[in-house]
């Protein structure tokens, strides 16, 4: 897994609530058997109109917006457990998703793929969306070590929470399998005690 420490980038605003994983990657694209290439179909049915033309009203298609941070409305990633959603976002180029609330399974999947979910307050989310809308060149700074997210060249800053174990994993690029494999003996002992 790729390491994550700090990131400074412009951001793409997606002020929609309850964005479910069916929108992030529609089910018809889940037939692949590897992890690559899902970015092409990220938000497919929002990025393209019914006739296949590009939907210029959608933030990801608006030239003024770019960057590796996605700022989205409340309850991001709800619905299906498909990890393909996290793969689609990372493959599209996102490294951070900011929202005022994340669905559990998506949050876990993101963390397992080096995609940092940054949960901010409702008020701070409004500030971010507003700042980006006012000036699409606005840069956000995410510091995982200090657990802060701020708007560059302003005093807007907020602390965010992250599980300390997951933080260590992200900073070092470790994944859970490495850790669990190191506990095999304990796991076998547990099995023996139960039977």
């Amino acid at each position: 897994m790729e390491k994550f420490t700090t990131l400074q980038s412009t951001a793409i605003p997606l002020a929609i609530e309850n964005i479910d994983t069916d929108q992030i990657i529609p089910a018809r694209f889940l037939k692949a058997t590897d992890r690559n290439g899902f970015g092409e179909n990220a938000f497919r049915d929002w990025r393209f109109n019914k006739d296949g033309s590009v939907n210029t009203d959608f933030a990801l298609n608006q030239k003024e917006y770019s960057g590796s941070i996605l700022v989205a409305g409340n309850n991001f990633g709800c619905g299906s457990s498909r990890e393909h959603a996290a793969w689609a976002l990372t493959d599209y180029g996102f490294k951070v998703v900011v929202s005022s609330f994340f669905a559990d399974i998506f949050k876990g999947n993101a963390l397992n793929n080096g995609l940092l979910p940054v949960q901010v307050s409702d008020d701070f989310l409004k500030v971010l969306l507003n700042e980006i809308k006012e000036n699409p060149k606005t840069e956000l700074i995410v510091n995982l070590e200090k657990q802060t997210i701020s708007v560059a060249n302003t005093s807007f800053k907020e602390h965010f929470e992250i599980d300390p174990y997951k933080k260590t994993c992200l900073i070092n690029g470790y994944d859970d399998i490495d850790y669990l494999l190191s506990k095999k003996e304990l796991i076998t002992q547990f099995e023996n005690q139960r039977s």
Binding site: S81, E83, I105, N109, L180, K183, E191
Partner: peptide, 17 residues
């Protein structure tokens, strides 16, 4: 429900963190 990384974890260790 779990994600695919967790499917791999359970494959490897029959456990989850």
């Amino acid at each position: 429900g779990i994600g695919t990384s967790q499917v791999a974890q359970v494959f490897a260790s029959q456990c989850l963190l």
